[in-house]
């Protein structure tokens, strides 16, 4: 279970009775039908000793990420939590190939990443939806760039817009949508390209609780059905425990992997589960230290829990 010296498997004993029905979940007592062969030895995404320094225009340097070593298995759901400004978005940009590390390298399927590729799709924190396209055209964009034939595109647009409950808004422009609706468009746009690796940067931050719960379920279902690898950044530790196979806690400036937690709770999970809450509390205690450090750095005082 413990792959990494930093890995601390603390939640193996929090098994709640399985919620029945589902057979595809990875853990729990039932027949564990894995979406993909688990034996694949090479990790899907491998971060080798990644460091990244931002250079300010006045000669200042900021070490945003420092010697990050992380391995993500094929079909794994990794969640990353950390205080604001610890380099989570930067890390996803590196994996997406939109930025290059100052040191170390990113491997996907054992191949060096040196640019963007449609095997990895990032849902940006700022979304980056195109205002000159309608909702449907935004969803279509990635497929169009990858020469997916038109009838197939139409079908997928319909499917993914229904998935995010936006079918009725397909002909709207982005500025006519609410923040939560925009997040869902971005989700649909990324899912429609059907990448191997889905990189998600706080994709559910602006959603109301009900929509978020629904999308958690949908995302989990898609993940289980398609065997995608997901790297999911969030501020919300509970969300991380709800979704992740593993949660990595990052330190604040420089961003390092502080600790990794294997989440062995049976699926399907729910945000309100006591077991989820309990695991989240433990991780949060760990994270709070870093949040305090970040607040201290930003505001010059220390906040006691």
């Amino acid at each position: 279970m413990t792959l990494n010296p930093a890995t601390q498997s603390v939640f193996s004993d929090h098994r709640s009775p399985a919620r029945g029905g589902t057979t595809r979940w990875k853990s729990g007592a039932g027949p564990a039908v894995l979406p993909l062969p688990a034996a694949s030895s090479t990790p899907k995404v491998s971060l080798k000793d990644i460091s990244l320094t931002y250079k300010g225009n006045n000669g200042s340097r900021l070490l945003a990420l420092d010697s990050i070593n992380l391995q993500v298995k094929t079909g794994e759901f990794l969640c990353i939590v950390g205080p604001s400004g610890c380099g989570k978005s930067t890390l996803l940009h590196l994996i997406a190939g939109l930025q290059q590390p100052s040191h170390g390298h990113v491997l996907v399927d054992d191949k060096l990443v040196d640019g963007p590729g449609t095997d990895r799709i990032l849902i940006f924190q700022e979304l980056g939806l195109f205002p000159w396209l309608t909702v449907a055209q935004n969803v279509e964009f990635g497929m169009k760039m990858n020469h997916v034939p038109k009838p197939e595109r139409q079908e997928k647009i319909r499917y993914y817009l229904r998935l995010v409950h936006l079918s009725q808004f397909q002909n709207n422009y982005i500025h006519q949508l609410s923040g939560g609706m925009r997040q869902r468009v971005a989700l649909a746009r990324a899912l429609a390209t059907e990448p191997d690796v889905l990189l998600m940067d706080e994709p559910f931050a602006a959603l109301d609780a009900q929509t978020r719960d629904l999308l958690h379920d949908e995302l989990e279902r898609i993940w289980a059905e398609t065997g995608r690898t997901i790297i999911f950044v969030t501020h919300n530790v509970r969300e991380a425990v709800r979704l992740g196979d593993r949660v990595a806690v990052f330190t604040f400036r420089p961003g390092r992997v502080k600790r990794e937690y294997d989440i062995d709770l049976p699926r399907p999970r729910h945000l309100e589960d006591v077991t989820v809450a309990k695991s989240a509390r433990e991780i949060l205690d760990d994270l709070r230290e870093e949040i305090n450090r970040s607040l201290e750095a930003e505001y010059g005082f220390e906040v006691r829990p």
């Binding site: 700022e126 980056g128 760039m145």
Partner: peptide
């Protein structure tokens, strides 16, 4: 910058990046 990044991320290159984004 986000538009260019989003376009590249979704597989637009060179001329198509220019034309569509």
């Amino acid at each position: 910058k986000i538009y260019k990044m989003a376009g590249r991320n979704l597989g637009a290159r060179r001329f198509r990046l220019f034309w569509h984004v």
